[in-house]
């Protein structure tokens, strides 16, 4: 059921959308299932203004300091960070793999671009995830309509610009439908230029 609206104090800078912060951690080696993924997903905060965002963010652990197999998800209010959610089920995500050491800076740039509406794709963005893994960190940006090539191209180009990535960084797109089929988030992806 929908959560109540987040109140914004007079004078606060309201964001275009309200967002929820989620955290999840998976025991390494354990088979991921929809059920245990759902159980591991914890809602840790909600914000609707720039001031509320910074109040949460300044208390959040930076990706570089998180244990492996942890994920932070920042999603628009009403959208659960699951493939099966109504807003996600026809969507997909851009995947950017980062070598260790880049995640905290890139993640911050990613969030600021999302909250600041720099993607200019209307309501297409659902949320973003930073996934801390053993040998790499992965940023993903989820959008509603995987088939909308104009939108996914625009998201990719904005991502490249705001993350300030090295020019040879490979970006991959994966539909949530494909993730559901092969039960994996980052395997069997479609490299940029498909």
């Amino acid at each position: 059921k929908p959560l109540p609206p987040v109140e914004v104090k007079p004078g606060d800078h309201r964001l275009q959308f309200t967002y929820n912060i989620w955290f999840s951690r998976r025991a390494p080696g354990k088979q991921a299932t929809t059920q245990n993924y759902d159980q591991n997903l914890k809602l840790i905060g909600r914000f609707a203004s720039v001031e509320q965002f910074w109040a949460y963010y300044s208390r959040l652990v930076r990706p570089a300091d998180l244990n492996s197999h942890s994920d932070i998800h920042i999603f628009k209010d009403g959208i659960k960070p699951m493939w099966e959610d109504a807003a996600n089920k026809n969507g997909g995500k851009w995947i950017v793999r980062l070598r260790k050491g880049l995640a905290s800076r890139c993640w911050e740039n990613m969030i600021l671009a999302m909250l600041g509406e720099q993607f200019m794709v209307g309501d297409e963005i659902c949320g973003a995830v930073i996934s801390v893994r053993f040998q790499e960190d992965i940023i993903s940006v989820w959008n509603r309509t995987a088939q909308d090539t104009a939108t996914t191209t625009r998201i990719r180009d904005t991502l490249k610009r705001v993350l300030n990535l090295p020019p040879n960084t490979v970006m991959e797109y994966k539909t949530h439908n494909d993730s559901l089929k092969d039960h994996s988030s980052f395997r069997n992806t479609r490299a940029d230029g498909y």
């Binding site: 004078g11 606060d12 800078h13 309201r14 964001l15 275009q16 720039v50 001031e51 965002f53 910074w54 109040a55 300044s58 740039n109 600021l112 671009a113 909250l115 600041g116 509406e117 720099q118 705001v162």
Partner: peptide
């Protein structure tokens, strides 16, 4: 309505605002 757009520099300035503490 109008889309609320914030540039990165503005958001970064707001980080140090006492209101965000």
């Amino acid at each position: 309505g109008t889309r609320i757009i914030y540039e990165r520099t503005f958001l970064m300035q707001m980080r140090n605002s006492p209101l965000a503490k």
